[in-house]
Design a binder for these strands. Structure first.
Lengths: 147, 147
DNA sequence: GTAGTTTGGTCAACGTGGTTGACCAAACCG
DNA sequence: CGGTTTGGTCAACCACGTTGACCAAACTAC
């Protein structure tokens, strides 16, 4: 039963997150996009590296970048030191979306903390860390989900 | 941070589940299919009702049923009492997949319990139940995830 | 320095899971 | 009986993923 509850918890929270983001001027930001913006990060990256970070093929990563470029969240630029590489960077709009995601995410986490108590939340996080691969997602990328 | 850990936990567990199911003769069973078989249940249902249970449109439910029929997990039959309805039922093969899913799922849950201790798992489940809609997924459908 | 290999990006074809809109026939209801 | 609701399907489309093929730039080795 636990895993179904995990999924339910995650889904409802992500739904809440994007409903609030839509209200704040980012109606087109889909659940996946937040993770992609996080993985691109303030330093930028390339499509292949993005695929590695997200665990998908470079082609899939490239197509997702295409969509986010079309939406104005990302931009591509040539790498002066390697003509093969195309750097992918956050636009100011993309940075705004990323920051708002982080803020709303923290607010929602705060709600959980109020409902359960800070000690309970910390205990659950600690437990989960023990049974899940710590770096399945790049939890260490700064600036996101760092509540 | 908690929600990302929820997702990581769910993903890794579902991946483990389907790796084991592939070993047991169900290599084509995708993560979604288990939920669909569960929602169909031993009593059978219709495409529209299935859509309601899973929270998707009747068309999407119908297409998923098509695929599971093609794979041999489900079958369609006419409803003698309502010529509009097409009953969707588990085939023996589908029932086998459903049962194996339940067994493997329980084994994986057992691993979590061993790692955390039964009291910790019970406490987490209790906590999550408090902050997630209890019936987001039909947790009350008997015969699945009833560890 | 030229030849062979690795790497980054893209294109094409395809599969899966989802949407909305249109439509038909059967059932229900006044 | 006539109008509305319901169940199923078809069509078009979108998001996200896959593999395979391919090209050009970069690296490596002789």
């Amino acid at each position: 039963m636990l895993p179904l509850l995990l999924l339910a918890g995650f889904r409802t929270l992500i739904d809440d997150l994007h409903a609030e983001l839509a209200r704040q001027g980012h109606p087109e930001l889909r659940p996946l996009h937040g993770f992609v913006l996080q993985a691109v990060g303030t330093d930028g990256t390339t499509a292949s590296e993005l695929g590695n970070r997200l665990g998908v093929s470079k082609q899939a990563a490239g197509k997702t970048v295409d969509r986010l470029v079309a939406l104005g969240y990302l931009e591509r630029a040539d790498d002066p030191r390697d003509a093969r590489r195309k750097l992918v960077r956050l636009t100011p709009y993309g940075l705004d979306g990323l920051r708002r995601s982080a803020v709303v995410f923290d607010e929602l986490r705060q709600r959980w903390t109020e409902a359960l108590g800070a000690d309970r939340v910390a205990a659950i996080e600690d437990d989960l860390r023990r049974v899940t691969p710590a770096n399945w997602f790049r939890l260490d990328i700064p600036g996101w989900f760092t509540g």
